[in-house]
Computed example of a mutant assay.
Amino acid sequence: MRIKKNITLSLFAVTFLSCFTTITSQNKTAVEPPKIIQDTVKIGKLSVPPLESDSIFTDNGLKLKPYKKNAHASYYADKFTGRKTANGSRFDNNKYTAAHKKLPFGTRIKVTNEANGKFVIVKITDRGPFVKTRELDLSKRAFMEITKSKGAGAMKVTIERIIE
Results as ranks from 00 to 15, higher is better:
residue 48 V to K: 11
residue 48 V to R: 06
residue 49 P to T: 02
residue 50 P to S: 13
residue 52 E to I: 00
residue 53 S to V: 13
residue 54 D to W: 01
residue 55 S to A: 06
residue 55 S to Y: 11
residue 56 I to A: 00
residue 56 I to C: 01
residue 57 F to T: 04
residue 58 T to Q: 02
residue 59 D to C: 00
residue 59 D to I: 09
residue 59 D to A: 14
residue 59 D to V: 11
residue 59 D to E: 14
residue 60 N to K: 11
residue 61 G to C: 08
residue 61 G to M: 04
residue 63 K to Q: 11
residue 64 L to C: 01
residue 64 L to W: 02
residue 64 L to Y: 02
residue 65 K to S: 09
residue 65 K to F: 02
residue 66 P to T: 08
residue 66 P to N: 07
residue 67 Y to M: 03
residue 68 K to H: 06
residue 69 K to P: 00
residue 70 N to E: 15
residue 70 N to A: 07
residue 71 A to V: 11
residue 71 A to F: 05
residue 71 A to L: 07
residue 71 A to N: 05
residue 71 A to I: 07
residue 72 H to V: 06
residue 73 A to R: 06
residue 74 S to F: 04
residue 75 Y to R: 03
residue 75 Y to P: 06
residue 76 Y to W: 01
residue 80 F to C: 01
residue 80 F to K: 02
residue 81 T to E: 15
residue 82 G to Y: 05
residue 83 R to Y: 10
residue 85 T to A: 07
residue 85 T to V: 07
residue 86 A to T: 08
residue 87 N to T: 13
residue 89 S to T: 14
residue 89 S to G: 09
residue 90 R to G: 01
residue 91 F to V: 06
residue 91 F to E: 04
residue 92 D to A: 07
residue 92 D to W: 00
residue 94 N to H: 12
residue 94 N to I: 02
residue 95 K to S: 06
residue 96 Y to E: 09
residue 98 A to P: 06
residue 98 A to I: 01
residue 98 A to S: 10
residue 99 A to K: 04
residue 99 A to Y: 04
residue 100 H to V: 01
residue 100 H to M: 04
residue 100 H to Y: 06
residue 101 K to N: 12
residue 101 K to T: 09
residue 102 K to D: 12
residue 102 K to V: 08
residue 102 K to C: 00
residue 102 K to F: 09
residue 103 L to M: 13
residue 104 P to A: 11
residue 104 P to V: 07
residue 105 F to D: 10
residue 105 F to E: 11
residue 105 F to L: 05
residue 106 G to R: 08
residue 106 G to I: 08
residue 107 T to P: 05
residue 108 R to D: 05
residue 108 R to Q: 15
residue 108 R to C: 05
residue 108 R to G: 02
residue 108 R to M: 10
residue 109 I to L: 02
residue 110 K to P: 00
residue 112 T to H: 07
residue 112 T to F: 03
residue 112 T to P: 07
residue 112 T to S: 11
residue 112 T to Q: 04
residue 112 T to R: 08
residue 113 N to A: 09
residue 114 E to K: 14
residue 115 A to V: 11
residue 115 A to W: 00
residue 115 A to R: 13
residue 117 G to K: 07
residue 118 K to C: 03
residue 119 F to P: 01
residue 120 V to I: 15
residue 122 V to L: 09
residue 122 V to G: 12
residue 122 V to R: 12
residue 124 I to D: 14
residue 124 I to Q: 14
residue 124 I to W: 11
residue 125 T to N: 15
residue 125 T to I: 15
residue 126 D to V: 08
residue 127 R to W: 12
residue 128 G to H: 10
residue 128 G to P: 12
residue 129 P to F: 10
residue 129 P to K: 09
residue 130 F to K: 12
residue 130 F to E: 09
residue 131 V to L: 14
residue 131 V to P: 01
residue 131 V to M: 13
residue 131 V to Q: 14
residue 133 T to Y: 02
residue 133 T to A: 15
residue 133 T to V: 05
residue 134 R to S: 04
residue 135 E to F: 08
residue 135 E to I: 01
residue 137 D to L: 05
residue 137 D to R: 04
residue 137 D to C: 04
residue 138 L to Q: 11
residue 139 S to I: 02
residue 140 K to E: 10
residue 140 K to G: 00
residue 140 K to M: 08
residue 140 K to Q: 13
residue 141 R to W: 00
residue 142 A to T: 05
residue 142 A to P: 03
residue 143 F to C: 03
residue 143 F to P: 06
residue 143 F to A: 12
residue 144 M to S: 10
residue 144 M to N: 14
residue 145 E to R: 07
residue 146 I to E: 02
residue 146 I to W: 01
residue 147 T to Y: 00
residue 148 K to Q: 14
residue 148 K to S: 15
